[in-house]
Simulated assay, not measured.
Amino acid sequence: MRNQDLRSGRSYDLGKMGLKQLWVAYLTHPTILLYFSLIIGCIVAVCYTFNGWVPVLSSIIVMIFGFPLIWYIIHRWIMHVSLLYRMKWSASLWKRIHFDHHQDPHLLNVLFGSPLNTIPTIIIIGGGLGYLVGGFCGFFASIGTAVYMSCFYEFFHCIQHLNYKPKSRYVSHIKQVHVLHHFHYEKGNFGITNYFWDKIFGTYYEDAKARPRSPTVFNMGYTVKEAEHYPWVMLKTGAPPRDRPAGSNFREHKKDCTQHTQKAA
């Protein structure tokens, strides 16, 4: 598939793309290209401020283990709370960082986090932790690691929504678990490639039997009734919130969830 085709609106529908098409879309996407540039910039900055391997390696290790927890906290207690859409000044932010993704889980352009939100978060949290561990050298090493892990997360997040059956048992498993988050019960399975913290906090589940199907799985609680009281997201969208994606593959995924449940039983 040619790159110009991938940039034509709904051609970015992961539900209609294969693995080869994803690689083209992923490697040419402006957000990913920006992340690659930041990683290179951080490597240069680490070399310039280098003061020993201990600060560098310590910062990298802290971020490798810290990133899944940071993601879990942001996903569960920021992206999935109603407070942001109830305030006019933060409604657009909430819409972009997660509501649009749940309304249309296969749309690549809203699957990636906006760099305007992700990069400041990485600099403040990731860079802050790195600086505490290793000074300026650790600051850049930690940011570079966090951006790299973001690229890793984003790619596998795409796989989880892609029209593709993974051969790897691990990838197949994380895809199955994430599909449940989007098409069965949104208040669980907040991880992407790592569900350790879901298991620690009791939000992990592997099959549809473990949780009742949520009526707000596609709108995260921003129903038509809520939109009447807090209209800012609806006004920005230009349409009332939906209880399933447009042109929905909902029946397909409901069938997938049922099959996984039967297999688990």
Rank of each mutant, 00 (worst) to 15 (best):
I159P: 00
L108E: 01
G52Q: 10
H157K: 07
L33F: 08
Y26P: 03
Y72H: 13
W197P: 08
F99I: 12
K16A: 13
V147S: 01
T49P: 02
Y185W: 03
L38H: 00
I123F: 08
V147T: 07
G238S: 04
N249W: 14
F112Q: 05
V233L: 07
I64E: 01
F50T: 11
F67N: 07
P30S: 05
Q176D: 08
G127K: 00
I39C: 14
H101T: 14
V62H: 00
K225M: 03
P166F: 05
D100H: 02
F36Q: 06
N51W: 11
R96H: 14
W23I: 15
F218A: 09
P166C: 07
N3Y: 13
L116A: 11
M17D: 05
D13C: 02
M149G: 01
F250Q: 09
T261I: 04
A265M: 14
I124E: 00
E154C: 03
W23R: 12
R244T: 10
Q262C: 05
L38K: 01
K20I: 15
M17N: 06
A25W: 03
L27M: 12
W94D: 05
K209R: 13
H184Q: 03
R96P: 03
R211S: 04
H181T: 10
Y205W: 07
L33R: 15
T223R: 08
G41Q: 07
S82L: 13
L83N: 09
Y230P: 03
G52E: 08
H229S: 12
Y131K: 07
I43D: 01
G144L: 02
M234R: 12
S172I: 04
K225H: 04
F99V: 08
L27K: 06
W23K: 12
C257H: 07
S11M: 11
V110Q: 03
E206D: 11
L84N: 05
N163A: 09
C151E: 00
Y204D: 08
N109E: 14
G126N: 05
H253V: 06
Y26W: 13
Y170P: 06
D198T: 10
T145H: 02
K187Q: 15
W94N: 03
H29V: 06
A210T: 11
L116R: 08
H102G: 05
R7P: 06
N117G: 11
I61R: 00
Q176E: 11
A265D: 14
S248K: 01
Y185C: 05
N51T: 15
S92V: 14
M17C: 09
V24G: 02
H75L: 04
L132M: 12
E186K: 02
N51S: 15
I39F: 04
L235T: 12
V147P: 05
P240W: 03
T31R: 09
A25P: 01
I123T: 09
N51I: 15
D100K: 07
Y230M: 04
G113I: 08
V56L: 04
R213L: 04
